[in-house]
Simulated scan of single mutants.
Amino acid sequence: MIKVAIVGYGNLGRGVERSLKQNQDMELVGVFTRRAPENVATEGAQAFHMDELNNKRGEIDVCILCGGSATDLPVQTPEVTKYFNTVDSFDTHAKIPEHFSKVDQIAREHQSVSVISTGWDPGLFSLNRLYAQSILPQGGTYTFWGKGVSQGHSDAIRRIAGVVDATQYTIPNNEVIEKLKGGEKLELSTRDKHFRECYVVLEAGADEEAIRAEIVSMPNYFADYDTEVHFISMDELNRDHKAMPHGGTVLHTGTTHEATKQVIEYNLHLDSNPEFTASVLVAYARACVRLAKEKQFGAFTVLDIAPKYLSPIDDATLRKELL
C-alpha cells in the first residue's frame, strides 16, 4: 500500500480524499491543515495540524500538496520536499521553470522525489502539446480553456485585500476554434483566444474601482486578457457561482505530404475541476513513489515520467490489454 498524506484541505484536498477511495493500492494517512483540526470536516480522514507532519515521517510515502499556486506552493513544496516525496499542482505557467529549479535542488540534496505542476493544464494538456508538436512539426498548437471556473485565478482574486470571495470563469473564443479546425492559419495573441469574467464579493467599504484595477492588471493572471469584473453579494455568489465545471481543448493543426491537412484534438469536459485535478495528482503520486523506490531523486514534471508509472497494473498486462 502507498501511504498518502493530504496537505491542505480545500476543494482540491477534498477531491484527493475522494479519489484515494477509488485506488485500492493507496491508503490515506491523514489530512494536514493550518486550521484547527477539530474544525476541519473531512469525509472520514483523520485531520492533523501542519505542525504534526514531520512526526509522521516513517508513516508517509508521499504528500499531495493541495495549496494554491499564488502563495502556498512556492513555499510549501520546497519545504515539505526536504522531508517527504511530494506532488503539487503549481499552475503559474510563467514561473514553472523557477519553481522546478528550486524544488529540484532541494529534492536532490535531501534524496526525495517531487512531481510538480501536475493536473490537466499544466499536466495532461502539456503532454498532448508535446505529442502533437513532435508528430506534426509543420503546424501550430493552440490551447483553449473553458468555459469553466479556474481555481487558480479565483484564488488569486481572493488573495486581494478587501475581497471576501470570488469566482472566475475562463471563456474560450469558439469562433476562433472553428476557424482553426477549418484549416485557417491564424496568428493569435493571448487576448484573442480567451475572455475572463470575474464575480467578486467585497468587504463592506472596500474600494470597487481600486480592486477592479488590481484584478485586471494582475500579471500572469489577468493583464494579458480582456477581463470583466462583477461585484455581487455573497448570497448571489453562493447561489449561482459555486459549481466547479471546467474543461478545454488542445488543438494542433499541421500538414504532412504536400500540404495534406492533419488535425489533432484533445478535449476535456469536467463537471468538477478540483475532483478531476485531484485524480491526476493521485495517479502521479503513485509514479512519485515508484521513482523514489528507484532512487531517481529530484524534481519531475509530466513530461519526464513514463505513462506506465501512473498505473497500478503490471507492465505485461498493460502491453497485453492497452497496446
Rank of each mutant, 00 (worst) to 15 (best):
D226R: 14
A204Q: 14
V7C: 13
T143Q: 10
Q168Y: 09
I215G: 08
L53I: 09
L186V: 11
C288P: 08
A45K: 11
A41F: 13
F231W: 04
L251W: 03
L28A: 09
A107E: 00
N267S: 15
V201Q: 07
T118C: 15
V216L: 04
A47S: 13
P74A: 03
K261Y: 06
N174K: 15
R319M: 07
W145E: 15
A292M: 04
A47I: 01
T253E: 11
V115A: 14
G205I: 02
V302N: 08
V149N: 11
M1E: 08
D25C: 00
P219G: 12
L12F: 09
N128H: 15
R18T: 08
Q76S: 04
T71I: 10
A285C: 08
G30V: 10
V263H: 06
A47N: 06
Q138A: 10
G44W: 09
E214F: 02
K308L: 00
E178A: 14
K21H: 09
I96W: 03
S150Y: 04
L322R: 12
P312G: 05
N85Y: 05
Y225Q: 05
D207I: 00
A306G: 09
S311K: 10
A210F: 03
P122E: 06
H230I: 01
E52Y: 09
L202G: 01
R18V: 11
V16Q: 06
A45R: 06
T255A: 13
L136Q: 07
V302S: 14
E209V: 10
S69L: 04
K102V: 01
F100T: 04
H269M: 14
A259P: 02
T317A: 13
D207R: 05
F195A: 07
G148W: 00
L124M: 15
L251E: 03
T42I: 03
L130T: 12
A306I: 04
M244C: 06
V29Q: 11
V164Y: 03
K21V: 09
V200T: 01
T33F: 01
I177A: 07
F297W: 09
M244T: 14
P172R: 11
P172C: 08
G15K: 07
F300W: 14
M1G: 12
I157S: 00
G205H: 06
A5K: 04
Q76G: 02
